[in-house]
């Protein structure tokens, strides 16, 4: 089923002043239930503005947004409830963690939804399990956690509201490589187990290519490319023109194909590249598709 539809959405900051900036230009977008979407673009491309429209924090200057068939700008539409359905986790967990314990902090969202203390605790319990935060940290102060654990606590705080779509704004910023992989694996597992739609905002093509089924590339307030990672990275020259880069693998495979090797230039992940190169060299490997390359 169609989860969200954005129809000719425009957004202008500081309209009618000298500082007027059109942050979103005619965005048309359909998001289906259960999709795993990567949203890429450099700073100022409009991706942060876009995700704040999804849960109604920002209101489009013109255009409409439909959530499960209902116009969220309709009079009488409960936009506060929408924030529970479109769970938005901002980049810095430090901006939302405030309670004395992690557990109490995760209860904050469900309590705002009007749930009883007991129900809120049930939600927190499930959410903390879902993000894989070890129980020993649940009653610590959120300020004592490491970067990766803070991130998990923050995601749990939004998950506890039982959203239908989870939007994560650069969940790996500032984490070390292992921490980054752990968080992304956890998000992928979460997507698998709950079937909830996930939108992952990121700077890193490598990260996104590995996980998502659909990639959106934004530039100067518009959606420039929309497709599977393979389709999008085929346009690697366009990506470069807007200051982004495709994964290293894409460059390698194109170079090899150009030099006459029979490899698949559209391979986007390490695993695909490896298989394709081995095949070109006639070393057919036992295909072990689920092999973990991190």
């Amino acid at each position: 089923m169609m989860l969200m539809i954005l129809d000719h959405v425009n957004y202008i900051y500081s309209e009618k002043t000298a500082y007027e900036i059109q942050a979103l230009k005619d965005i048309n977008l359909k998001i289906e239930d259960g999709e795993f979407i990567g949203l890429i673009g450099h700073t100022g491309s409009g991706k942060s503005t876009l995700i704040q429209h999804l849960n109604g924090l920002l209101r489009a200057t013109s255009g409409s947004i439909y959530f499960q068939g209902q116009d969220i700008y309709d009079e009488g539409y409960n936009r506060k409830e929408l924030r529970g359905k479109v769970g938005l986790v901002f980049q810095y967990p430090e901006h939302q963690l405030f309670e004395t314990t992690v557990f109490a902090d995760v209860c904050f969202g469900p309590k705002n939804q009007g749930l009883s203390e007991k129900d809120a605790q049930m939600r927190a319990y499930t959410a903390l399990h879902e993000v894989g935060l070890p129980e020993e940290y649940w009653y610590h102060s959120p300020f004592e956690l490491s970067g990766g654990q803070k991130r998990r606590a923050a995601i749990a705080g939004v998950l506890a509201m039982k959203p239908e779509v989870l939007v994560l704004d650069e969940p790996t910023a500032g984490l070390d490589p292992k921490g980054r992989d752990e968080i992304l694996d956890q998000v992928a597992a979460l997507h698998q187990s709950t079937g909830m739609a996930v939108i992952l905002v990121s700077h890193s093509m490598e990260d996104v290519a590995k996980y998502v089924g659909r990639l959106l590339v934004m530039s100067q307030g518009s959606i420039l490319l929309d497709g599977t990672p393979r389709e999008v990275f085929r346009h690697y020259q366009e990506l470069e023109a807007i200051g982004l880069a495709a994964p290293q693998v894409t460059y390698l495979m194109h170079e090899l194909a150009q030099k006459g090797l029979a490899v698949d230039p559209d391979a986007t992940t390490l695993g695909e590249a490896k298989d394709s190169i081995l095949q070109a060299f006639g070393k057919r490997q036992r295909r072990n598709r689920q092999e973990n390359y991190d």
């Binding site: 070390d176 490589p177 292992k178 921490g179 490598e206 994964p247 290293q248 693998v249 390698l252 390490l270 590249a273 490896k274 190169i277 081995l278 390359y293």
Partner: peptide, 14 residues
């Protein structure tokens, strides 16, 4: 808990 550049990792896998 570290990483290597993607090209290094691919070479290693190959």
């Amino acid at each position: 808990r570290l990483d290597v550049p993607q090209a290094t990792l691919l070479a290693y896998e190959l």
